[in-house]
Design a protein around this nucleic acid. Structure first.
Ligand SMILES: [Mn+2]
Ligand SMILES: [Mn+2]
Ligand SMILES: [Mn+2]
Ligand SMILES: [Mn+2]
Lengths: 227, 227
DNA sequence: AATATTTTTTAGTTGGGTCTAAAAAAATAA
DNA sequence: TTATTTTTTTAGACCCAACTAAAAAATATT
């Protein structure tokens, strides 16, 4: 005898799909294509189609064949829970375990699936209720609200403006390692001295040191707040 | 092209089987029966047979049909790694997250499968290299050595002897909660005043309080060190 | 030693999650 | 508007880890 209120449980695969659909939906409200999901899940389009039908069955996404997919409120809640866990664990790994910011993503991909509400509450308290993760990304609240931080891309900052590095828009290890090598870390005081029209690179002074060149590709993925 | 030295990876299911075969093998060297494994894995004997064939295939157990199973050196190494992770995470949950000793086992069952050598090394250091978990069980070293603690069962202690509670031989929540209710926690100073022949219960003074009765069933699962 | 019981294995299914190849639909180009 | 290309879905398969039912082997009982 099945109850309407039975706690529906989620597999790792389902959680990963929901999380990825959430990521692809951020900042707009178009439906997400099967191929886009396939790319991020590292699977094939045919596999995605199967999974989308299953997720729709469970009420976590709205999906009609050939029309793309978007999260239902229930699905978004699950996705935000996973993102919350992922980011809290990343804070733990950096703050308590001494990892560098480029080393934590893969481990958090595993830890985000640990199922225990009380654990995640205690972890949050242990970390003193962080607002952002080691990459500057906001941590959803336990009620499923994603704080809006409203940062700007460094590539959009005009010459002669000053700002602070607040986050990154990409967490691949190679990118983060490059930033570290360039002395670019969270909280760095940036002064955009020039924008070079030729290649859209910018000359930036970091913490008042002599200016260095930052490529457009890099600047695009750096998030800042004007000061 | 496959290499002889390829890192063979383990699924959750395989890790659980190896851990359980390890547990069933402790303290003797008879082979383990299919049914014994089925009981602890909460599966059916037919499923166990399938898995044992697979584990033997991978070289982690010695298995011949109808003859039972035992771990190979490689399998024991994997099992000890899982036990090490399980116990270190339990220490973390109690010492850092503030859980009670009866609340951590289920969560550790999940955390023990997180795969990251560097994480477990850092966790070990963060916890200041604990020798035992919250239930008094020894933590295997990173080289795969299980320390022998040589504790005695409280049920084997003679009248008028004094001892200290060092561990428990069972980590079910109800049992641990009962111990807590009886003021029996790790480190408690015990004085066995009488052994009651009728039901093998014992009269024990805990931390110098007036003696209470402890059933044989409970005493059997309490590990102590004579003082 | 013959029979009955228990344990273990085999045979055949199932469900979850993936794949490839082929078909169908949608989007783009001619 | 028709043809071509791209995207998506379907069909059929595979692997993993579980299951049930039936057969076989081992063990216990008479
Ligand atoms: Mn991450
Ligand atoms: Mn992050
Ligand atoms: Mn445990
Ligand atoms: Mn334990």
């Amino acid at each position: 005898m099945s109850s309407k209120f039975a706690q529906m449980s989620t597999s790792f695969a389902e959680e990963n799909y929901l999380k990825i659909i959430y990521r692809l939906s951020e900042g707009h409200d178009d439906d997400i294509s099967t191929n886009a999901v396939a790319e991020l899940t590292q699977t094939k389009a045919a596999s995605v189609t199967d999974m989308l039908r299953k997720l729709a069955e469970k009420g976590w996404v709205h999906y009609q064949k050939y029309q793309g997919v978007r999260l239902s409120p229930a699905g978004e809640k699950i996705a935000l829970g996973i993102v919350r866990k992922h980011r809290l664990w990343e804070v733990f790994l950096v703050e308590k375990m001494g990892f560098n910011w480029d080393e934590v993503h893969e481990i958090a991909e595993q830890l985000e699936h640990i199922e225990s509400d009380s654990l995640i509450e205690k972890l949050d308290a242990f970390l003193e209720f962080p607002k952002t993760d080691p990459h500057g990304d906001p941590i959803p609240t336990k009620n499923g609200v994603m704080p809006e931080l409203g940062y700007l891309h460094l590539s959009d900052i005009k010459a002669n403006k000053r700002c602070v590095l607040m986050g990154v828009a990409k967490d691949s290890a190679v990118f983060l390692q490059l930033l570290t090598k360039m002395q670019l870390s969270l909280g760095a005081a940036l002064h955009v001295e020039e924008v070079n029209a030729f290649d859209r690179s910018i000359s930036v002074s970091i913490d008042n040191a002599p200016a260095v060149f930052i490529s457009h590709e890099v600047a695009k993925n750096i998030l800042v707040k004007l000061t």
